[in-house]
Computed example of a mutant assay.
Amino acid sequence: MNVGQLMEKLRALPPDATVLIEGDEGYSPLGGIDVQHNDNGLPDEVILQPDMTPD
């Protein structure tokens, strides 16, 4: 999935819904977004980071 496809999917969702990331330990709220810029013709990558705030 690329950013354009993700944006299209997100537009169809309720704007006040919480974004969660599924991981080995269950679900975590989205805490941030990082961009990995690549060279040699590889596409850049968007990395979704979980919220690491203690419960």
Score class of each variant (00 low, 15 high):
42 L>E: 09
36 Q>M: 15
51 D>L: 05
29 P>H: 05
48 L>P: 13
41 G>D: 09
7 M>C: 14
5 Q>C: 00
9 K>Q: 13
52 M>I: 09
42 L>M: 14
20 L>F: 06
42 L>W: 08
10 L>V: 08
49 Q>F: 04
47 I>L: 13
7 M>V: 13
12 A>H: 09
30 L>I: 05
52 M>H: 11
53 T>K: 11
28 S>V: 14
33 I>V: 13
1 M>T: 05
7 M>T: 12
6 L>D: 07
35 V>R: 07
40 N>V: 15
16 D>I: 09
3 V>A: 14
35 V>D: 06
36 Q>W: 09
29 P>Y: 00
5 Q>N: 04
13 L>Q: 04
6 L>F: 06
37 H>F: 10
48 L>Q: 12
19 V>N: 03
23 G>Y: 02
21 I>G: 08
52 M>R: 14
42 L>R: 14
24 D>C: 02
10 L>D: 00
1 M>D: 07
33 I>R: 02
21 I>R: 02
16 D>Q: 11
5 Q>P: 00
55 D>N: 11
10 L>C: 02
13 L>A: 07
5 Q>Y: 00
21 I>K: 02
36 Q>H: 12
25 E>K: 05
46 V>I: 10
1 M>A: 07
5 Q>E: 05
32 G>R: 03
16 D>C: 06
12 A>P: 05
36 Q>N: 13
47 I>R: 05
8 E>T: 15
7 M>Y: 10
35 V>Y: 08
46 V>G: 00
11 R>K: 15
5 Q>M: 01
8 E>G: 15
32 G>S: 04
27 Y>H: 13
20 L>M: 11
12 A>I: 09
29 P>I: 04
31 G>F: 00
45 E>M: 14
47 I>P: 06
3 V>L: 15
33 I>N: 08
27 Y>A: 15
44 D>C: 15
37 H>T: 12
20 L>P: 01
48 L>K: 11
34 D>L: 10
2 N>D: 10
47 I>G: 03
44 D>A: 15
46 V>Y: 01
19 V>D: 04
22 E>F: 12
40 N>W: 14
49 Q>T: 13
31 G>T: 02
47 I>T: 08
19 V>I: 10
3 V>P: 07
30 L>W: 04
26 G>F: 00
43 P>M: 06
16 D>R: 05
16 D>M: 07
44 D>R: 13
21 I>C: 08
17 A>P: 04
31 G>R: 01
54 P>Y: 10
17 A>M: 05
55 D>H: 08
14 P>N: 12
23 G>V: 03
26 G>I: 02
11 R>D: 12
43 P>K: 01
49 Q>M: 12
55 D>M: 12
13 L>W: 02
17 A>T: 04
45 E>L: 14
25 E>I: 11
23 G>I: 04
9 K>L: 13
26 G>L: 01
41 G>T: 10
39 D>V: 15
48 L>S: 12
49 Q>H: 11
7 M>F: 07
4 G>Y: 04
34 D>K: 06
2 N>F: 00
20 L>N: 05
14 P>F: 07
45 E>H: 11
38 N>V: 07
1 M>L: 07
37 H>L: 13
32 G>T: 05
